[in-house]
Amino acid sequence: MERLRRNPELQAWLLLAIPAAFLLIFFMAPLVIVFVYSFLERGKYGGVEWVFTLENIRRVFDPLYFKTFVRSFYIAIVTTLITLILGYPLAYYIANSPPSRRNALVFALMIPFWTNFLIRTYAWLTLLRTHTGLINVTLLNWGLIQKPLPLFGNDFAIILGLVYGWLPVMVLPIYAALERLDRSLLEAARDLYASSFYAFRRVTWPLSIPGVVAGSMLVFIPSLGAFVTPAILGGGKSLMIGNIISNQFLGAHDWPFGSALSMVMMIAMLIATLIYFRWTTSSEIAT
């Protein structure tokens, strides 16, 4: 007991032992299994044969699958850009509201975010469907269009669903950065006859970059790994890498290839994140 009190390192490990062991067994070990499976041969009836092969990794770069990879990247990048363009002014608006209204607006932002993602995606399904969706039905009824618009089962629907789903996640960190911003800096800029645009560009924007980076990462990663949105709004035609992965486990029973796909996806995410961080920190210094 006396030794425990004197030894903070022992105390720390005592506190961390169970949670760390839990994650080691049920998170890190599964991660290692996926890594190992990527290099094994496919078993006859699902499962694996313990034979080393690079075939799965090679197949990931087969044009058939690699095309989906590139498309998923494209969808994730476009989604991140649109949420940033839509989210920044919204965060700015909330941060510049009177303090009494600010909390209510953040609350209003939280409600859609805490609404089940599946439900929010389903809501768009009922709006976008080609022949029975609310938007096309209404526009046809009003005679504004002759043919239903192609709103569903394509990249547009997926990007819209993702933007809708992840917009609050972009807004919150930017808002947090803007709210912390020292207003006297802006006043100083204005006193020195900086135009409002110039003051924004040289003061507000650089100081909000940490929020922009955090928000972009929080949108980009789940967008790249999206499964629910393309499954529902892609209409079975427009797929992303998450769907190809799930197909290897639910349909094709090709676990090693599914593992290889998710390994490459995670590594690609890691690389994209690192490049993005490098890029934003260097541009922060430049301004």
């Binding site: 789940p222 790994g225 998450g242 992965i245 676990w255 995670m266």
Partner: peptide, 15 residues
């Protein structure tokens, strides 16, 4: 927190 849920899902499935 940062790993995409589809990756975590198949990791656990295999485990």
């Amino acid at each position: 927190v940062i790993i995409p849920d589809i990756a975590m899902a198949i990791m656990l499935l295999l485990f």
